[in-house]
């Protein structure tokens, strides 16, 4: 109880304010040692002899995961900007469909969307001869276009909602000033509105990118060989359960760390002086 009583009064942070000492507190050293012990135990007691045989496959899967993540984030964001703009400032004829799109995407599981596109649409396409004869058919027969499409739409749906708030959050005076300068509407969007909206949305972009990373293993369910699919393959080949999954979790932790680090760098590039 004394602990909590001290916490609420403002004196507490000053008393043990030096964070350096707190960072190396003895209990943290113990926790770190326990963590190292767990890692060492999993290295020594679990089976890792399969690892060298799968280096190539793991690298391939890692590359595909990162590639899908990057492509769908970029495409999804490009789609999210008009979606957000339509909801924030568009007339009803574009605002209503944009809102409906965001609601549908955010209201149904991504796994279902993925399967709807791959199995549902994929089973409809062959019925139409003109699709089968078109140039796109070789691509439509593969799984990855559906994966990219589903993840892009999903990212656009979630990020469109964020961009709606970001566009609406830009102070009206900024836009009025731009109009007073005689800027055309597209110039206002390009020079004033969009940059400020992106700046506002940047902190959530990192979170959305991590969420998108966590959505990528779903593509393994439609036969795209990503990192997760490689781990499943190892599990089936070697009859082991934990090792590939633990390695997989470690990979995702590292990728998440890299994403957070990159976005923090990106945020620091833009001078932040929000009024």
């Amino acid at each position: 109880m004394t602990e909590t009583a001290v916490q609420t009064f403002r004196i507490a942070p000053k008393q043990n304010g030096d964070t350096e000492a707190r960072r190396l507190a003895p209990h943290r050293i113990v926790l770190a040692l326990i963590g190292l012990g767990l890692v060492a135990a999993s290295i020594f007691f679990l089976r890792w002899d399969w690892l060298p045989n799968y280096y190539g496959l793991i690298a391939q899967g890692l590359w595909r995961t990162i590639w899908i993540l990057a492509v769908t984030c970029v495409l999804g964001f490009l789609l999210a900007v008009p979606l957000g703009l339509a909801q924030a400032a568009g007339p009803a004829i574009v605002a209503v469909p944009a809102r409906a799109f965001c609601t549908i995407i955010r209201g149904t599981p991504l796994l279902l969307q993925l399967w709807l596109l791959y199995y549902g649409l994929g089973s409809l396409f062959p019925q139409y001869p003109w699709i089968r004869e078109s140039e796109l058919w070789p691509y439509l027969r593969q799984a990855w276009p559906y994966a990219v499409l589903a993840l892009t739409l999903s990212y656009a749906g979630y990020e469109g909602e964020v961009m709606r708030g970001a566009f609406a959050g830009v102070p009206k005076g900024q836009l009025e000033a731009a109009r007073a300068f005689g800027m055309r509407r597209f110039t206002i969007l390009r020079r004033i509105w969009l940059p400020q909206a992106i700046h506002r949305a940047l902190p959530t972009l990192a979170g959305e990118a991590v969420l998108q990373l966590k959505a990528t293993p779903l593509v393994a369910t439609i036969t795209v060989i990503d990192l997760y699919a490689v781990a499943s393959r190892v599990r089936q080949d070697m009859f082991i359960t934990y090792e590939p999954l633990l390695l997989l979790a470690a990979f995702y932790l590292v990728i998440t760390g890299v994403i957070v680090f990159l976005f923090r760098r990106l945020e620091r590039l833009i001078p932040s002086k929000l009024g």
């Binding site: 991590v210 990373l213 966590k214 959505a215 990528t216 293993p217 779903l218 997760y228 359960t241 934990y242 999954l245 633990l246 997989l248 979790a249 995702y252 932790l253 998440t256 760390g257």
Partner: peptide, 18 residues
């Protein structure tokens, strides 16, 4: 931190089997 950084699918498999 760990639960929010690792995909739910992987966590579900790990926790389910483990």
């Amino acid at each position: 931190t760990i639960v929010r950084a690792v995909p739910e699918l992987v966590l579900i498999l790990l926790l389910y089997y483990a």
